[in-house]
């Protein structure tokens, strides 16, 4: 069984519209059309069979300089795990101070990937910014 998949390449500003013909049983790409370079083919392969994204969001902080701290996954995680990861992180609360790249969650949504703080966040209730 072969199937067609269309995607826009994001490797460079050209933004080629690639059509890939996929062999669904063998999990292979049979052919490409539309890509103007090899990097496009590599992108399409990853994007079709194992799309991954770095997830960035915020986590609640107790007693911090700000009420939330920005966090990201240390590595890209499978795209279909993003919803679960967001839900897990929404339920978390950490206590200030938070160190730069402090591990906020060691293994998010069973991906084996850690979630780390994007910035240091000092403990300071103080006055609001603005």
């Amino acid at each position: 069984m072969s199937k067609e998949r269309k995607l826009i390449c994001i490797v460079c500003p050209v933004g080629c519209e690639i059509t890939a013909t996929i062999d669904e049983e063998k999990k292979e790409i049979v052919s490409f059309t539309g890509n103007q370079c090899r990097r496009g083919a590599a992108y399409a392969k990853d994007e079709i069979f194992a799309p991954k994204r770095v997830l960035t969001t915020t986590v609640r902080v107790e007693g911090g300089f700000l009420p939330v701290v920005p966090v990201r996954t240390a590595e890209p995680i499978p795209k279909d795990k993003i919803r679960d990861a967001l839900k897990e992180l929404a339920a978390l609360k950490v206590t200030a101070p938070v160190a730069f790249h402090q591990v906020i969650c060691p293994n998010v949504a069973g991906t084996g990937v850690a979630v780390i703080a994007e910035r240091p966040l000092p403990a300071e209730p103080g006055e609001k910014a603005g």
Binding site: V54, T56, P70, F100, E118, R119, P120
Partner: peptide, 24 residues
């Protein structure tokens, strides 16, 4: 500090930093 998404510094440092990381 509010651009918490990644993609900063790819050209300069060959890394995809987030805004706060780039600032840090």
């Amino acid at each position: 500090q509010q651009c918490i998404h990644n993609g900063f510094g790819l050209h300069l440092f060959g890394e995809e930093l987030t805004g706060p990381e780039y600032a840090y």
